[in-house]
Design a protein around this nucleic acid. Structure first.
Length: 726
RNA sequence: GCCUCGGUGGUGGAACUGGUAGACACGUCAGACUCAAAAUCUGAUGGGCUUUGCCCGUGUCGGUUCGAGUCCGACCCGAGGUACCA
């Protein structure tokens, strides 16, 4: 009988369905494994990247089930987001209809791939039941002061018509549509992720060796902790007068307090309140004011491309230790978003300060020995630094901070590059932020019993403005506190909020889904995810947010887990002709067509065989044929299996070829635990099985065949029964 | 600029803690079967040579070692991240 994947796979898929073969047990006392592939956005169809992601996770899930673990291997849908609205704008389809019909289609695709997902734990993040619990978390975070509303400068994408988080800006452009991001002043909701910066940073060391070091490094750099000194520059009396008595002083931050005696000027960001005051009150030359305004209108990315540029502000400050007068400038390289938007400048020991000082002929004063040329940023002894002269600079850092603290002139401070997470989006297809604006009571959270605050179905989605804002009635409501007429918040939550806690939702027994968002006992049993699999593009975005949410929800009492993902595997991209598969390049391979032609087993075997999962995978049509040949051969040789139990074999009676075949088969078996539990080098395991089969083919002992086939199917994670055609 | 990862045949990739480089597969070539083709099977396949065998070969140049793809140093190239963070 020839190999007919359609028939075989359909048969097994039906049987699995009937047996509910992949549902985890409700018992929370067994040893467990939680295997999770990042859930997909329901874009319409699966692509090869999905197939690779799920093939890897599925191999692990099946392996651990065979080892008698209670395995949770769920799937769901990251279902809110812009593309649904874009479909509405383009094709006139309602985002909800578009999303759920895509889900139905893609669920079928997953089915034909024979993936061993739990069926009962599936959900979409746009399900009102999911929104309900998420809104409750958001309100609890607000009550704890972790969520706040503030008007600040935000990243605005005009084409998506919404605000973006810092993490969603890539080289000054929108991560989704690649449009340049503009700065805009507007109110929004923020999650205080900085409060958790230290823990997020420190706990990375727990993940060492379990997460790719690259991802750990990226998160470390993104959090960007630096320690130093914060102190005030007091303005001179004349300068105070010039500023109309509005300002006495301003704060600066430095990581190099050891160079404080080398300060020759100070620089403020163009957005700094003092700069703004001077511009607005016409206290500068009109041309200068114009130039400063021009800089302020530039994005940070644009500014970074410009040469250093700055203007003296005609004011001075007093050096806190020497009492000298220091001129104050504004400069395009001083960022408003970091360290208070003001710096002390030490041109002798800082490259930027040096470049600026040279350009504008500002004095340069060396205070650290070492190096031939200035600027010198290395270590050495202090000179010309009063009582700190002759001290090694690393010691001096501490000594100067201590001294400043004793004198009440400054303090040791920690700063982070990490910005608080702006979670409001001015879009329709998202979870509404459950607050109400009341003239009397201010910002009031919706009552728990009124959750979810659901989206209205009757909206017009035109791409112009915020559909919720434009809806005739939806935003009008009663204040949950005083009952007067009030306005509902029309911003929705960033979709990354949904993907920050879905791993807990899967873990919660579906019987409790109505009642609770996360069940503590379930969460503590299943979490952390034993193996998480996904693309490296989420190295900071999703993986940082999910870590943050885990800690917040822990502190809200929902569970006792510190880190959501114990181990992380970042899979490589699927390429064709050297480029990422994409519709626009026309180099895609359709998973459906592949499964139709060769069957799911071939598709998955090829994907696991063609490259180690961490690496990029170059698509090769004829190598797919090779995978198909191997499976066909395995199927063909199933006739060689003569018993249903492992035979006893007398090693001494065997031919040289039979002995070699046994060696190869056992080598494969030995490799398998290492591959499934540690290296994930499925390509080498499959190669070992191919070697074993080649060696089996060169001998003809029936018992060795039976044993060899049994071992190969074990390694390949296929049910032995499957080859026996039982 | 800085941080990370990588560079092995025509191709994808093997090679555990230093010990026969190129497993396995693709491709190619030759052969068997066939009227023919497909499918299948068998064999060959890093380069060079004076071809029973020898020499050279893991980005480049040095080093350590009895022995280096693997360890050390310098450099070149590629991919990803990040970018005036004071």
């Amino acid at each position: 009988m020839s190999y007919n994947p359609k028939e075989i796979e359909a048969k097994w898929q039906q049987q699995w369905e009937a047996e509910q073969a992949f549902e985890p047990s409700d018992s929370l006392s067994q040893k467990k494994k939680y295997i999770l592939s990042m859930f997909p956005f329901p874009s319409g169809r699966l692509h090869m990247g999905h197939v690779r992601n799920y093939a890897i996770g599925d191999a692990l899930a099946r392996y651990y089930r065979k080892q008698d673990y209670n395995v949770l291997h769920p799937i769901g849908w990251d279902a809110f987001g812009m593309p649904a609205e874009n479909a509405a704008i383009k094709h006139g389809r309602h985002p909800k209809e578009w999303t759920y019909s895509n889900i139905d289609y893609m669920r079928k695709e997953l089915g034909t791939l024979g993936l061993s997902f739990s069926k009962t734990r599936e959900f979409a993040t746009c399900d009102p039941l999911y929104t309900k619990h998420e809104q409750k978390f958001i309100i609890e975070m607000f009550q704890k002061g972790l969520l706040y509303r503030e008007s600040t400068t935000v990243n605005w994408c005009e084409s998506c018509h919404t605000v973006l988080a810092n993490e969603q800006v890539e080289e000054g452009c929108c991560w989704r549509c690649d449009n340049p991001v503009e700065l805009k002043e507007m109110p929004g909701y923020y999650l205080d992720i900085i409060r958790y910066a230290d823990e997020l940073l420190e706990d990375l060391s727990q993940l060492e060796g379990k997460w790719p070091s690259q991802v750990i490094t990226m998160q470390r750099n993104w959090i960007g902790k630096s320690q130093g000194l914060a102190f005030d520059f007091e303005l001179t009396e004349e300068s105070k007068a010039k500023l109309g008595g509005k300002f006495d002083r301003y704060e600066v931050f430095t990581t190099r307090p050891d160079t404080i005696y080398g300060v020759t000027y100070s620089a403020l960001a163009p957005e700094h309140p003092i700069t703004k005051y001077l511009v607005e009150h016409n206290l500068l030359e009109p041309e200068v004011a114009e130039k400063i305004k021009a800089i302020a209108n530039m994005s940070e990315v644009e500014r970074a491309k410009q040469d250093k540029e700055g203007y003296p502000l005609g004011i001075n400050v007093i050096h806190p230790l020497t009492g000298e007068q220091i001129p104050v400038w504004t400069a395009n390289f001083v960022l408003a978003s970091y360290g208070g938007g003001a710096v002390m400048a030490v041109p002798a020991h800082d490259e930027r300060d040096y470049e600026f000082a040279t350009k504008y002929n500002l004095p340069i004063k060396r205070v650290i020995e070492g190096g031939e040329e200035l600027p010198y940023t290395g270590s050495g002894r202090l000179i010309e630094s009063d009582r700190f002269s002759c001290v090694e600079n690393e010691e001096a850092k501490i000594a100067i901070i201590n001294y400043m603290e004793e004198e009440g002139k400054g303090q040791g401070t920690t700063n982070y590059k990490l910005r608080n997470w702006g979670v409001s989006r001015q879009r329709y297809w998202g979870a509404p932020i459950p607050f109400v604006h009341c003239d009397e009571c201010g910002l009031v959270p919706e009552k728990f019993e009124n959750l979810p605050v659901a989206l209205p179905d009757d909206v017009e989605i035109t791409g112009e403005g915020n559909p919720l804002e434009n809806h005739p009635t939806w935003k009008h409501c009663k204040c949950p506190k005083c009952g007067k007429e009030a306005l509902r918040e029309t911003d929705t939550l960033d979709t990354f909020v949904q993907s920050s806690w879905y791993q807990f939702r899967y873990a919660t027994n579906p019987k409790k889904w109505e009642e609770v968002g996360i069940d503590k006992a379930d969460a503590d049993y299943w979490l952390g995810v034993d193996q998480y699999i996904g693309g490296i593009e989420h190295a900071i975005l999703h993986l940082l947010y999910a870590r943050f949410f885990t800690k917040v929800l822990r502190d809200l009492g929902y569970h006792d887990i510190d880190e959501p993902f114990q181990r992380l595997l970042t899979q490589g991209m699927v390429l064709k002709d050297g480029a990422k598969m994409s519709k626009s390049k026309g180099n895609t391979v359709d998973p459906d067509a592949l499964v139709d032609k060769y069957g799911a087993d071939t598709a998955r075997l090829f994907i696991l065989f063609a490259a180690p999962p961490q690496k990029e995978l170059e698509w090769n049509d004829s190598a797919v044929d090779g995978a198909f040949r191997f499976i066909k051969k395995l199927y063909d040789r199933s006739g060689k299996v003569t018993g249903k139990t492992l035979p006893e074999i007398d090693q001494n009676s065997l031919s040289k070829e039979s002995k070699l075949a046994r060696v190869k088969a056992y080598e494969a078996l030995q490799k398998s635990a290492d591959v499934y539990e540690y290296t994930f080098a499925f390509n080498t395991l499959i190669a070992a099985c191919m070697e074993a089969l080649n060696a089996l083919d060169k001998q003809d002992n029936a018992d060795v065949w039976t044993e060899g086939m049994y071992l190969c199917s074990t390694c390949l994670n296929r049910s032995f029964r499957m080859w026996l055609q039982s």
